[in-house]
Amino acid sequence: MPRFLYVYHADQPMRPDPEQAAEAMAAWGRWMEGLGPKLVDPGEPVGISKSVTKDGVLDRVENAAFGYSIVEADTMEEACEMAKGNPMVTGGGSVEVAEVMKIDM
């Protein structure tokens, strides 16, 4: 079954108070549980990113990545539908969805 990479994006780092953080973690847990075995790798949050180009290193990345997950789905459309209920989306951010392409070596 095809695998898809979810990259979580937001314009600003989230700094919720402890109560909001607990609610957010519960929402993530419910969403992940709802995916069941289609969630291949729940992923991890990531730290502040930089962008490396031929012109140098940029300290500010617009719409920076905040984490990732890997899921299985039959189609890109199914993978996108599964992402719609993600707490990043419902909280005002976005989920980038890309199929993971296997390379035969």
Rank of each mutant, 00 (worst) to 15 (best):
W31M: 05
G56I: 06
M82Q: 11
P13F: 10
L39K: 07
H9A: 09
P16I: 04
G85C: 07
G91I: 02
G91L: 04
G91W: 01
M101R: 12
E78F: 10
S51A: 15
V71T: 06
A27Y: 03
E81Y: 02
M82F: 14
R30W: 00
V46T: 15
A21T: 06
C80V: 13
D59L: 07
M1K: 05
G29M: 07
L58G: 09
E96C: 03
G34F: 08
A83Y: 09
E77T: 11
F66H: 14
M76R: 13
V89E: 06
T75Q: 06
K50F: 03
L58C: 01
N63G: 06
K50N: 09
T53N: 01
M88C: 13
Y68I: 11
P42A: 06
V89L: 08
S94V: 01
V100Q: 06
W28C: 04
A64H: 03
M82A: 07
M105G: 12
R30Y: 03
P18C: 04
P37S: 15
D41W: 07
E23T: 13
M88G: 12
F66N: 08
D59W: 00
L58F: 10
R60S: 11
F66Y: 11
A98N: 12
E72L: 10
P37E: 15
P37N: 13
D74R: 15
G43A: 08
F4I: 02
L39S: 09
G56A: 07
A64V: 02
K84W: 01
Q20T: 11
K38C: 12
D59Q: 13
A27M: 09
S69K: 03
D74E: 15
C80N: 09
Y8I: 10
P2Q: 03
L39R: 11
A10S: 14
S69T: 08
D55A: 14
A98Y: 08
D17Q: 03
V46Q: 10
D74F: 00
M14I: 12
G29A: 15
G92L: 08
G85Y: 04
Y6E: 05
D17S: 08
D104N: 14
R60T: 15
E44C: 14
A22K: 15
G56P: 03
S49K: 11
S69E: 06
A73N: 07
A83N: 10
D11E: 15
A98D: 02
P2F: 02
D59V: 02
L35S: 11
F4P: 05
R3I: 00
A10K: 12
G29K: 12
V97M: 01
M82W: 09
E44Q: 15
C80S: 10
V46L: 15
F66T: 14
Y6H: 08
R30M: 07
Y8L: 15
G91Q: 06
V40M: 01
K54A: 14
N63P: 00
M105L: 13
L58T: 00
P37V: 09
V40Y: 02
A98T: 10
A21R: 11
M76Q: 12
G36N: 04
S51W: 02
R30I: 02
E44P: 04
N63V: 00
G29L: 03
D41R: 01
E72H: 07
S49M: 12
